[in-house]
């Protein structure tokens, strides 16, 4: 009699690779979009006055104080309820990007604020316009300073992308979960999945720490 469960075989490679590919896609989308948005919001926050800053801050605070998984479920249910259901990739990308933005904006704000006022005054007194100051002074210096923390956030986004599985996106962890329920071999599959994340994350996190040390001196 055939068993209900079939063991893991090489035929599953394609399925797993789809999961790997989907994890990479959604992480890249979220990191790129989150970085760009975060840069804009971070700059706006570094530039604006207290009241505007407070309003910005409280909205971003919501994104950071509600679990990502709840945000994902809420968003995908919400767009469904108003009659525009989205596919999991789009919904997941939007939520993950906004979530990334919330963290990135703090990182970039810190970076822009670390460029001292006197340096900006100096640039202005050399005859640079406001935008030239931003382009030649504040962006290059501010962005350089945030590289290690940027990497930290980017890495956590790769790891958090696993949660998008909850709204049905077939990323790595979800494919593995489905394989587990078919094969009943949880350990082998999970170790493989863990290795994948580890191989991506470990070198980058060490590079980030190296940069941090190098810049600290």
């Amino acid at each position: 009699m055939n068993s209900l469960f079939t063991p893991l075989s090489w035929d599953d490679t394609g399925y797993i690779l789809t999961g790997v590919w989907n994890t990479i896609t959604i992480s890249v989308v979220a990191i790129v979009a989150g970085t760009l948005l975060g840069m804009i919001v971070g700059f706006a926050r570094a530039e604006s006055n207290k009241t505007v800053n407070f309003l910005f801050g409280s909205v971003l605070d919501i994104l950071r104080s509600v679990p990502l998984i709840i945000q994902l479920i809420l968003f995908s249910t919400f767009v469904g309820a108003i009659g525009h259901p989205m596919n999991p990739f789009v919904a997941g990308s939007i939520v993950l990007s906004l979530y990334t933005m919330a963290f990135m904006s703090e990182v970039f704000r810190g970076g822009f604020e670390s460029v001292s006022k006197s340096m900006q005054t100096a640039a202005r007194s050399l005859g640079m316009t406001y935008w030239q100051t931003i382009y030649h002074i504040r962006f290059p210096i501010g962005l350089r300073a945030v590289l290690p923390s940027w990497m930290g956030v980017a890495l956590s986004v790769i790891k958090d992308s696993a949660l998008v599985s909850v709204i049905g996106y077939m990323e790595l962890l979800r494919t593995s979960e489905q394989l587990i329920s078919r094969t009943q071999q949880p350990l082998e599959i999970l170790i493989g999945v863990g290795l994948f994340y580890f191989i991506i994350s470990y070198p980058l996190s060490h590079y980030g720490r190296y940069l941090e040390r190098k810049m600290a001196i």
């Binding site: 587990i180 863990g194 580890f198």
Partner: peptide
């Protein structure tokens, strides 16, 4: 430390919930 920092939290939970079943 390295495993905890470099793998997703969801992976850890799955590992504890499904993975340990193998033992």
């Amino acid at each position: 430390v390295e495993i905890a920092r470099n793998t997703p939290a969801l992976f850890q939970i799955y590992m504890a919930y499904f993975g340990l079943g193998a033992f």
